[in-house]
């Protein structure tokens, strides 16, 4: 390429354009082979009857939208969708409230809190292996586990059977999701709050506005893009909820499939090689996540999210 140096001008010469293509080729080649083709193939498979009964292979036979109709006819997907959304919400609502509170506390310089240690600790669970974390909770809250031991020694007659009750099982999954994500959310919201021009807040203080009022009328509206971003990415993450409930309930979604999530349902079909149904479920999940991803894309594209959390 050194031979092209005679064409060197102030602006980059056209001849370098091909290097752009060369540098991005590995990415796009890999993406096509390992993501795009599989995605197309997933759509394709969803139109075929293709499963196994014992040793007998049924299909593949083209049946149009029959798999989709079957998914809704069985009705399980509605139940699992509800489970997923319910568990996500129970984790997300305290998460956003506590994260907002922490972000405000951490960015309030008059309090002089030692934030870095706390930030480090609350972010830590985000990096923990979800399946190990879930296994840990299963051991801790099992019928003879440490938590029940403590409850008994504190005077309860007999332990509480956490995994035999709908509320406590869902609650524990939500608690784990909360613990794993509130640190991350706090850091994002902090970045948003620190991006606010301090002179706005100072002048509001001069005018005698109280701090709750400043929070409601200035901080909250200004970090709205980041709040929306957190909400949507958390929804996308919520739809992908798998490791925690899968390990906690051993893939069964006990009690009575009330903690079975959408991806656990997909996993069940994939595992039993019921490819038609798995395809239909995948496509439905793709549509939901694609809509949500589209929202994130628009936010990033319009420059609302980027370096420093918030762009002006």
């Amino acid at each position: 390429m050194a031979s092209k140096s005679e064409t060197f001008r102030k602006h980059k010469s056209v001849s370098y354009a091909k290097w752009g293509y060369i540098f991005i080729t590995p990415f796009f080649l890999t993406y096509c082979i390992f993501s795009l083709i599989p995605l197309v193939s997933t759509f394709y498979n969803s139109f075929f009857e293709n499963y196994r009964v014992g040793l007998e292979q049924i299909g593949p036979k083209f049946i149009g939208f029959e798999n989709y109709l079957e998914v809704f006819r069985q009705g399980d997907i509605i139940k699992y969708f509800y489970n997923t959304v319910f568990i996500w919400l129970v984790g997300f609502i305290p998460q956003i409230i506590i994260s907002l509170l922490l972000a405000v506390l951490f960015t309030d310089l008059s309090l002089k809190l030692r934030t870095s240690v706390f930030k480090s600790i609350i972010y830590m669970p985000n990096l923990i292996m979800a399946s190990a974390f879930s296994m840990l909770f299963f051991a801790l809250f099992s019928d003879n586990g440490p938590v029940n031991n403590m409850l008994v020694s504190m005077g309860m007659k007999e332990g509480y059977r956490f995994f035999a009750n709908v509320g406590s099982t869902r609650g524990l999954i939500a608690l784990m999701n909360f613990l794993m994500w509130f640190g991350n959310t706090t850091i994002l919201l902090m970045a948003g709050i620190m991006g606010i021009d301090t002179s706005i807040i100072e002048s509001a203080q001069m005018d005698g506005a109280s701090s709750p009022r400043i929070f409601r009328k200035i901080t909250l509206p200004l970090i709205r893009p980041i709040l929306v971003y957190v909400l949507i990415t958390s929804m996308i993450g919520g739809i992908q909820m798998f490791d925690v409930p899968q390990i906690l309930t051993n893939g069964k979604g006990n009690p009575d499939r009330t903690s079975m999530t959408l991806i656990m349902y997909l996993n069940k079909h994939l595992y039993s090689k019921n490819f038609g149904m798995a395809g239909a479920v995948s496509v439905l999940l793709f549509i939901i996540t694609a809509i949500l991803s589209g929202c994130v894309f628009l936010m990033v594209y319009r420059g609302k999210i980027g370096t420093g959390g918030l762009k002006k």
Binding site: S35, P38, L39, Q240, F242, L266, S282, F297
Partner: peptide, 11 residues
Amino acid sequence: MMVPTQVSALG
């Protein structure tokens, strides 16, 4: 960026 890998797992 945000499309989860699970949705194309079958393919």
